[in-house]
Amino acid sequence: MDLFLQQLANGLVIGSTYAVVAIGFALAFTVLRVINFAHPDIFMVGMFAGLLAGVQTPWLGFLVTLVAGAVGAGAVGFALERGVIAPLRGRDVLMTLIGTLGVGIILQNGMAVIVGPDPVAYPALIPRRFVDIGPVSLTMRQLANFAVCLLLLTGVSFYVRGTTWGRATRAIAERPEVAAAFGVNVARICQFTILLASMMAGLAAVSVGVLYGSAHAFIGLLYGLKAFICMLVAGNRYFEGVMVVGLAIGVIEALVTGYLSSSLRDAAAFFILIGVLYFRPNGLFGSYAS
């Protein structure tokens, strides 16, 4: 039972990061009809932007690093939207997929040229101390990672439900033309959506970097594929659905690691995806028709 609770907690921590990255995919896909394959690499850029700030100014601590991660990732995301996604608006989904993938290749290998292809040590901004919560013990770093991601998820949930821009965002997701006819500035909201998704990824990336104590130019691949699966499993109608699936996939992976074998961990997500899509082709919570 203790193992179960411990793995549940570990899974929730990993899953919260999947959920944040998956929300970034889902925002881009629902609002802009773009599968943004550069998103995982924007996550990676945020991680290194935070690392740069953390190494230069270690006395300023975790918060400044987070801000630097968000700014770095946001800047790249904004440039991507202006440079590649906006000019390709209205084109086939596959073309923007390939275009953003090309940007992702550039970002990955560009970063590998700058920092080298091997993992780089991340500044230890939070002590690696264990905290016992009932039968479960987590490190301070895990708690920080979880707290950052949970704040982002509640924040984005509030944004899309409770604010004018958020409602405009959902209106565009439903019917872009009608939303535009009702006075929504579609181009502006699209820019902001990518900016928001990128900054969220940057924040989560910094907390992940601190959690594992290392950053890697190709780390985006790992989170990107899992987050992409989360979005497919959930369907893109409800952002909250994507969050729940992200957490659930993290938990299932942790349980598979704990009870079966760690080599089956990566397979779990794919088997879930095939199973869910066979019985519910529009995802667990439904999708917008595209």
Binding site: L225, L232, I274, P281, A289, S290
Partner: peptide
Amino acid sequence: DFILKLTTLAFGEA
């Protein structure tokens, strides 16, 4: 839906 044809992706990965 196009996006769901990406199941093939998971098939290959599996």
